[in-house]
Design a protein around this nucleic acid. Structure first.
Lengths: 194, 194, 194, 194
DNA sequence: GATGAATGAGACTTCATTCAT
DNA sequence: GATGAATGAAGTCTCATTCAT
């Protein structure tokens, strides 16, 4: 396997495992076993578990951007529709996982950020940047929508939309109910319409 | 010392440490040392770390109910004012901690729930119940307010207010910015006014 | 409760638990709980777990002497009959326990002696003395029988009878089969008849 | 070092320590230190202390079979001689240890079986199988001898020979007297001659 | 004499990480 | 570049024992 392939394969495994079982819930043994490579190989590509997590967050952000945001934006121009579809895509993905595993995984970025931000500023910043990378999509939506919610400026509006998504995903995880994401969808649309 | 006192003292220590450093970020050595009791004493009162966490979540929920919700409800009758003050109290507390420690801790319930819900259904349920115990306050606010946001029934409104608070606290933690809680406050008030 | 009563009650509990679960298999918590007294009370009567074990072995030896050997000797004068009945009594007791618990406990003296003799010379000697206290019964049997097995002097004969009993009880424990005791009975009778 | 070598080295250490100091008398710290490997290395080869004990019993059985039984059978064909030599080899080994350490260790299989059979059915069965693996040697002796002791069938005879060996080793341990094994030797020979 | 509560030491086990080939 | 094997540090938990009332 080519170097980059191995690396990406490890990262994909890490993304999935960290998301499914949390950072501390996965150890390097399991990770390398599931990835099908030797533990030492993992350490040749990533100097530490934290390093691996950082890289995994980066890659997950890229993939989320591609599969959730960019694909949605390619589908439609209407800002409300875009917002609705983002939530819907997220919902579908979580619904599928919930059906298969009986568990709502929540947001991969928020999860690892909340778990590690107190012990690792590095992770907190990485997660912060990952989430921030989605903001421009919400920004475009807000701009295209034309009006801002009463008393909110552009920045606040965008960050509210993010917070709303995060709150919805946290709720879906803690209540173990994918439907919480659809609640969030409606909240977001109402918020934009205010 | 009386049994209950020791127990509560351990619990208070646990609440604070888990909140400040996450569940995996605290070990039983540190916990007992900070509590000023022997490790074995902790285990005489709580069978396991998880058990301790469960009890700590319970106690934290009681105290949150008392110091945030009940105290606010005693101060004013006006629903909007109540909602505003809840956020304000939360903000003040986090602001204080942020000033002292340079870190936003986020929501103690969400934090531990997100960290452990995949590995312990018990913790997930405990956190779920803790958060649910706050819902009746939002319920009262919604009822007193008289009208529901466009297209939301009572239950959805309440759970949206919860999700909004959680989203705000997650944002404050990930952005390390207490102000995110005030953003949430305004979102909540707008949402109620819709 | 009178001092001696408490003490004896603790001892009886210890005898039963050590026999059923081995020395390391029982902790002072469980012991005091089953005895229905406070742990500190146990330590007022016995300075240590080892001390308790020593006293328990003593008491168990007295009771075994009374219920197995003396009672048998009161029943019949015939040496072979006496030997047979000793094994039979032992068998019945183990059969009963096996029916109730599904487990053969083996010999209480051998068990604890084998478990602890390498770490505590004190226990080894106590067990040795306990077993030695039964030797005079076998001695009487041998004497009354009149003849010694070919090539065995009196002392060797007695100690062989003891070893045979121990071997039988060990077998019953390791095979979890009370019948091994009856095998031992027949071996003993044959041996005496040699 | 090759995997199997390390494993066997750990096992040999375990066999010796468990035999010398009992299962509970040895902790994993000491064990790994004496074996000259890291504690974690032990756990990489054996999932738990019990697992290690099980493997150690297996290996000890193989070695006992080789060094006591097979070597004896290679030396002579005569059944009585074989029986005598088995005991003699056992005696010599214990005599040597007694000279060096001042302590009779008893039977490694019986020791650990008696210590743990109540708490671990797994160990009991492993020990049972280990001891059973020696039975065929006694069986061959009995067969070659031609006649059975009065009133004993083949199976009972074999199991009596085993019980006799166990009783002898238990006696040697509890009396701390290697000579008890020679007493057992004479008992066995007499028994066979009955 | 008895007890509720506390404790120091140490048990087993697991972790992220590195070495030697 | 990859791997089988090894490791130091730390983790959770339990034990026999003692203190203070």
């Amino acid at each position: 396997m080519k170097k980059e392939d191995t690396q990406n394969h490890i990262l994909d495994t890490a993304i999935d495992l960290f998301w499914a079982k949390s950072y501390h819930g996965v150890n390097m043994n399991e990770l390398s076993r599931v990835a099908g490579v030797n533990k030492a190989t993992v350490y040749q590509h990533f100097t530490s578990k934290e390093e691996l997590a950082v890289a995994a967050i980066h890659r997950a952000a890229e993939r989320t951007e591609e599969f959730i945001y960019q694909s949605t934006f390619a589908e439609t121009q209407d800002p409300k529709e875009r917002l609705a579809r983002i939530y819907h895509k997220v919902f579908q993905m979580h619904e599928g996982i919930f059906s298969a595993e009986g568990k709502c995984r929540g947001c991969p970025f928020v999860n690892i950020g909340v778990e590690l931000s107190t012990s690792s500023g590095r992770i907190r910043k990485t997660v912060g940047r990952a989430l921030a990378s989605f903001e421009r999509y919400y920004g475009q939506i807000v701009d295209a929508h034309g009006t801002l919610p009463n008393g909110f400026d552009r920045k606040e509006t965008v960050s509210s939309l993010m917070a709303n998504m995060n709150g919805a995903l946290v709720a879906s995880k803690l209540e173990n109910r994918p439907g919480a994401i659809l609640d969030g969808q409606r909240r977001a649309l109402q918020f934009l319409a205010m």
